[in-house]
Amino acid sequence: MGSNKQEVEVSYDVSNEFFRLWLDERMNYTCAVFESEHQSLEAAQLNKLSILSDFAKVTANKSVLDIGCGWGACLEYLATSRSVKRAVGVTLSSSQAEEVNRRKLPGVECVESDFMKWETTEKFDALVSICMLDHLCSPEEARKGKAIDIYRAYFKKCHEVTNPGAWFGLQTILRNKIPRIKKDLEDIYFCTHVIFPGGLNPRLEDIVQAVNPYWEIITVKQRRHDYERTTAEWLRRMRLHEARIRQEWGDHVFDDYDRYLSTCVRAFDQFYSSLAQYELRRLDA
């Protein structure tokens, strides 16, 4: 197992208010895709949702599943901007699930569950999953050579919950190269143990192997510099609220997140990490 429920709570449950200070207003905690050099984070986050929805061939008459829905930014987008008749989200975090259901978005339902163990008879016409797969495999499992099997089980599960003809807009962080510099190594170790415990990011070739025989890769878009800009903007905004964060959540929260976000910016710049978006077509038997 990668990240379990406790670990996801560690990652996301500092306090919604804390994240509200430095994420965009819709609370997207994943990579935005910028359309121009100085575009705002808000606009770029909507663009990201637009791209993934287009990859998933979302239209108003379809039902869509968002695997790892976070605070529901994508569900909200699917329900309001794309007018889909039904949008279901799955998250491990109870506070996220409550938050999403409290908003009573039309056609939206959020389920608190481990997607891999989630039992449902419902079949969806389209899938979106944004940076959830990154949490599935632990470093220990990767060392034992289990990564591909774990990811393949995920793609199999995705296949099972979809109707024939489904499309899938997937976004994942990627790991590329382990740093050889001590400080970078320590920073990344810190991030994977303190901020996001449990998960090890996949490599691009892992995904390429694991989608078979369930999904066909139609498009892969590399977005490394978009994530560099996204994390740099989060860092900039968080630092604007330094005094308040130190006062309300303590020095360690500010210092930890400052280090975490700085490390992310550098990791994407140095290509230790990257980000990819995939347009996947369901392989129907």
Binding site: I178, P179, R180, I181, K182, E186, Y189
Partner: peptide, 11 residues
């Protein structure tokens, strides 16, 4: 440790 190991590899 793994950190030192990667530095050794790097050098």
């Amino acid at each position: 440790d793994s950190l030192s190991m990667m530095q050794i590899v790097g050098e």
